[in-house]
Write a protein that binds this DNA or RNA. Structure first.
Lengths: 341, 341
DNA sequence: TTGTAAGCGTTATCAT
DNA sequence: ATGATAACGCTTACAA
């Protein structure tokens, strides 16, 4: 009595029998039609269609010891910032033979570690991770991964392999310098979540204020809670309670900036006359708001796209010379920071 | 001469040798520690750690003919609506043994078909697809898939397997009825993208206006372009050029509604006195806006969470009795639709 | 509780 | 251009 445990799915062997060739010929025909004669190809195509053959990725991965899966680990799928990065990633993947495997770490280094372990067990062709603040274990796994790795969102001194991003600290410094140059003197920092990138933005804010002799720890209001528009309004309330004399706010991100604008409108505080506002990222809504909102534009789609490009070049043996790419940022000065008065 | 083509990775056999047991015992120990004696378990754990063993998912999938992968196909990763659904999905998956494989169809039935083909080649444990408007080929593949399938976002008469969503037509009808009840008489429809769900919302709008004797085809302004806040402002401009006497707008989604609000502020049109506004979905920003914006709340996270719950129950042989779950909607009446005058 | 043997569906290797 | 064969790393079926 045989131990049959077939799955019921059509296999290569069955297609081969139908087309009257060997299994390996079908395998080759499917992966690289060039290698097979015209006539054989046609018989195989007919057989595939007739039987409704679908290749089994697991068997393929096992036999070839590689996949076309690119693993991407990002801290959030709901945050607009990462949706834009994802759009760039999908764009760059389009038309290539690679598939995306997306992992949502929810801003937790532990979840990142677990997800990476799962990803590695699938033998990815390449990996993209966010930021530079991995746990030691994650770092070690990345360094030992037998595939290229790109860190996106940030640049730093010690890449695992490749990097594409920008300096959040320099970005924040530029934004706050803009507010100071516009004439604001009591410039606050409003921050939520306080993940590593937010921390670095806070440092940039402090750098700028120190440079202008305007530093004042009272003007920093933060919360570990996840950022939202509503939270922006709440943070402004907290700030005004502490420092009613504040004349500008640098917001850790655009959601908070928009929340601040709404709350200012509700309290009839003139923007930009009594309160200057500057956001971070320059999401699409910033230009549309009334008054339009100043923000520091970051190149999120490009980060995703460029990350994938670097990864694929690397996978295909054409390793980029530049291992660390700084995409920079651009200050979009608008009505909300036109100056006090 | 043997044909060795080992990958260099640590295998189950090596762990077994190290722990001085057979491979199958290691396999069992890893999948279900209960089946193995305490002492053996400890030796195996030590060996795994010592050698840094990582299971090979491909081999596992091939041998067992199933995976713990749940495939999810959604039309957009950047749209807030789907990010909320995704959050629900991730929540529900948390702590289970299932992984997510996410596919972005970009609102294209063709991409959906291709992605589904790829997904099926990985033998998913279950599938989630968005909406009810699949291509015939997609529909056929779903019906023949040897795993449970949940359609989310919408409900309809002919489920592939299970469904969780709500009626977009009824939702739109309720929203427009609210505007009419508030006293608005020339209620416009502003729509972007015009995917199937948007089309059904337009029908609901028409249902409501017909019921109130207020129908007027001139008041419908749509575009196939992807929706955005900026586009909301542009649509209001188009509408006002055609019908300056419009007194309310029902927006196909919240981005458009917010864009309309900003544009109205820019043109100094009083909201809600001269222009009532109602959105669709009730994203977080609607309650924060100034004036706060009326919207039809949809249960997006719940759709994702419930979809996964139904799927997992089904995978595990505990098929829900209710195959079609209507989550309904809730009208959130706010300042922006307080009535004309 | 543990082990043996066979098989999952594909591709690498070598041969013709 | 095509084929025979073994191998990929794991799990199922059956046995002890």
């Amino acid at each position: 009595m045989r131990k049959a445990r077939r799955s019921g799915r059509v296999t290569l062997a069955e297609v081969a029998r139908e087309a009257d060739v060997s299994a390996i010929t079908v395998s080759r025909a499917l992966r690289d039609p060039e290698q097979v004669s015209q006539a054989t190809m046609e018989r195989i195509e007919a057989a595939v269609r007739k039987l409704g053959y679908v290749p089994d990725m697991a068997a393929r991965a096992l036999a070839s010891r590689h996949t076309n899966v690119i693993g991407v680990l990002i801290p959030s799928v709901t945050n607009n910032v990462f949706s834009d990065v994802l759009r760039g990633i999908y764009d760059a993947l389009d038309g290539t033979r690679y598939h995306l495997q997306l992992g949502n770490t929810r801003y937790s280094v532990l979840e990142e570690e677990n997800l990476l372990r799962i990803f590695l067990s699938q033998r990815p062709a390449g990996l993209i991770v966010s930021g530079t603040d991995q746990s030691p274990a994650t770092r070690a796994m990345l360094e030992n991964a037998d595939c290229p790795v790109v860190q996106i969102m940030e640049i730093g001194p010690d890449p695992v392999d490749m990097m594409v991003g920008f300096s959040h600290r320099e970005g924040a410094k530029a934004a706050v310098t803009h507010l100071a140059d516009a004439g604001y003197r009591r410039i606050a920092f409003l921050g939520a979540r306080m993940d590593p990138r937010t921390q670095r933005r806070l440092q940039g804010y402090e750098d700028a204020l120190r440079g202008h002799g305007l530093a004042d720890p009272d003007l920093v209001v933060t919360t570990p809670r996840a950022s939202s528009i509503t939270l922006g309004g709440w943070l402004l309330g907290e700030l005004l309670a502490k420092r009613p004399d504040v004349d500008a706010v640098f917001c850790n991100n655009d959601d908070i900036a928009l929340g601040v604008l709404f709350e200012a409108q509700r309290r009839k505080i003139d923007v930009p006359g009594k309160l200057g506002i500057c956001g971070f990222n320059d999401l699409e809504m910033m230009a549309s708001a009334c008054p339009s909102l100043t923000s520091l534009r970051t190149h999120r789609e490009t980060m995703g796209r460029e990350g994938i490009h670097m990864l694929i070049r690397s996978i295909e043996g054409d390793r980029p010379d530049e291992r660390v790419v700084d995409l920079g940022f651009e200050l979009m000065a608008r009505e909300s920071s036109a100056g006090p008065g």
